[in-house]
Every structure is written in structure tokens, then in C-alpha cells.
């Protein structure tokens, strides 16, 4: 199934991830963490299916080890569980380690989603007007990578059919790399001359924009801004305060967490809405 959220304007997508990662990285309150991990995980699984599940299973041990290791560095805390190398291993430090590992997990999950939604072309179309040279550079580079890999294979194949490459792998590799660099640079100069001949640098660069802000994009943008403002206000009011060491003290869960949950559910909710609409439409037929 295609992701509906990805079909929105890149700016809307980008802002969502700025909010999700920014808040996810700062909030240490367990309720907020749980909300972010649950939403992030479900969206990540929705986007990548089994691939995401495998990646998540790889993340989990890292996060757990990090949580368990924290009390070794941080010996603050009032409830001593046991003594290790003559140092106290405290419950509070372990909980704190768990919370900060949770932060790491939210970061990994949301960046995992980011990689699915905001592809290279979307990024360059988003920033192409602000940093034209750098984004042109980026476009050229991203195009060049598959090109270079293909050319490497061609060079190696050509050398093989010439009967070369029997003098050891290292020498052969060096010859291929050398040929590749020369070919790429000379080709690059031809490209550059061609660009100049077509008037590169003579006027302001226009960019090909495939994405346009439609009404639904403006709406979603407004919703995102309202929700994230509410979350930031709740954070400023101290609703996300959480102290772990020396003693655990958490702010009571309040409306801030609800807004946070709604914000993070936006991509999945859009997909859900789409699926329901589709069912209704099919039912009508």
C-alpha cells in the first residue's frame, strides 16, 4: 500500500519530522516517550513492513544494553539494587538509562521513517531555491553514484576481455580506480562546458517544481503548527518535567501528552482515512 502522508508537499513532511524528532529528543517523560515510540514504531512498520521489523529487532539490543550500562557511569540514586566493582548500581540510574535509551529509540525510529518519506529529490526540491549551487551539487552527486558503480563494472569487464588483470587483485583494482577517476573527471569537464554553453550562471536558476502546495497541504500544515505549538506550550508549563536521580519524580500526565499523541499519529491517521474512504467508495459500487 502506498503511503498517503508521502504524497503531501515535502515542506509539510519536513516540518512534521522536525517536530517529531525535535520533541522526541528532548522529552524524557515516560508517557511522552511511550507515545512517541508507539507511534514511531507503528508508522515505521507500516512503511517498511518486514524490513522495518528486522531493523527494529537490531535496534532493540543496542537500546537495552545502553539502558543497563548507564548505572555504571551514573551512580546517583537512592535505591541501591546491588554493588558492582565497589560501586552502587541504583534503580533510579537504571530507570534514567531506560528513559534516555528510549530517546535514542524514538530518534532511530523517526529517522527511519524520514528516510522512507523524504527522499533525495524531495529534499533538493525543498531547498533548491535557498541554496541553488549546493543543491545542484547534491543532485549531480546522487546521479553520479549509480553511474560510477556501473562504469566500474564496465571498466573491469573491458580489462578482463583484453586479457588484463592477472597481476593480482591490488594492481587490477588500482588500474580500475585510476581509469574511473580519469573518465569521471574528463566527462565532468565536458558536462561543465556543455552547461556553460547553455548559459549556466548567466541568470537566476529556475527549478523544476513537481510539488505544489494544494489546499490539503495548507490544512495539514495548519494542523501541524497548532498541535506542535500546543505541545511546546505544555512543555513550557512543565508537563514534561521528569527527574530520575536522585529520586524519581514525574509531572502528572495532562493534556499535553494527548496533543503530542495526535500530532504523531498524523501520518497513520491520514493512511487510515484513505483506507476507510476507499472502503466506503467500493461499498457504494
Amino acid at each position: 500500500m502506498k503511503d498517503t502522508f508521502s504524497s503531501y508537499h515535502p515542506a509539510v513532511n519536513f516540518l512534521f519530522f522536525v517536530g517529531a524528532v525535535g520533541c522526541g529528543v528532548v522529552f524524557l517523560h515516560p508517557a511522552y516517550l511511550a507515545v512517541s515510540i508507539l507511534c514511531g514504531l507503528s508508522y515505521y512498520l507500516f512503511l517498511g513492513k518486514t524490513k522495518s521489523a528486522k531493523a527494529f529487532l537490531l535496534m532493540l539490543p543496542v537500546v537495552l544494553i545502553l539502558a543497563a550500562v548507564n548505572p555504571l557511569f551514573n551512580t546517583q540514586g537512592s535505591t541501591v539494587l546491588f554493588w558492582l566493582f565497589g560501586k552502587p548500581y541504583t534503580l533510579e540510574a537504571l530507570l534514567y538509562g531506560g528513559a534516555v535509551s528510549g530517546v535514542l529509540l524514538t530518534m532511530l525510529l523517526w529517522f527511519g521513517c524520514y528516510n522512507y518519506v523524504l527522499t533525495g529529490d524531495k529534499f533538493t526540491s525543498l531547498f533548491g531555491n535557498w541554496i541553488p549551487s549546493v543543491s545542484l551539487l547534491l543532485v549531480m552527486v546522487l546521479r553520479m553514484v549509480p553511474n560510477l558503480i556501473q562504469k566500474t563494472k564496465q571498466i573491469a569487464g573491458a580489462r578482463k576481455s583484453l586479457g588484463k588483470g592477472n597481476e593480482g587483485k591490488l594492481k587490477e583494482g588500482l588500474a580500475v580506480v585510476g581509469a574511473l577517476v580519469s573518465w569521471a573527471l574528463e566527462g565532468g569537464v565536458v558536462t561543465a562546458d556543455s552547461m556553460r554553453a547553455r548559459g549556466y550562471g548567466t541568470a537566476k536558476r529556475q527549478s523544476f517544481l513537481i510539488y505544489r502546495m494544494e489546499r490539503r497541504d495548507w490544512w495539514l500544515l495548519a494542523v501541524e503548527i497548532i498541535l506542535i505549538t500546543a505541545v511546546i506550550v505544555s512543555a513550557c508549563l512543565g508537563q514534561v518535567n521528569a527527574e530520575y536521580t536522585p529520586e524519581v519524580s514525574l509531572a502528572p500526565v495532562s493534556w499535553g501528552a494527548v496533543f503530542y499523541g495526535i500530532y504523531l499519529l498524523i501520518p497513520l491517521a491520514l493512511n487510515g482515512k484513505e483506507a476507510i474512504l476507499w472502503h466506503i467508495l467500493r461499498f457504494k459500487i
Binding site: 541554496i131 541553488p132 549551487s133 549546493v134 545542484l136 551539487l137 549531480m140 552527486v141 553520479m144 553514484v145 553511474n147 560510477l148 558503480i149 566500474t152 574511473l180 577517476v181 569521471a184 573527471l185 565532468g188 569537464v189 558536462t191 561543465a192 562546458d193 552547461m195 556553460r196 549556466y200 550562471g201
Partner: peptide
């Protein structure tokens, strides 16, 4: 600074090639 210098096509392309090789 890179933007402000208005890099010419050859400079851009050479940097792009070196980036491409490093990325590969």
C-alpha cells in the same frame, strides 16, 4: 561562502565527481 562565490560549472562538476567517488 560557496553560494556567494557563485561557483562556475567546472568547479561544481569537479567537486561533484570527487564526491561521487568518495561516496562510492
Amino acid at each position: 561562502a560557496f553560494e556567494g562565490r557563485k561557483p562556475q560549472a567546472r568547479e561544481l562538476v569537479v567537486i561533484a565527481v570527487m564526491c561521487g567517488i568518495s561516496i562510492v
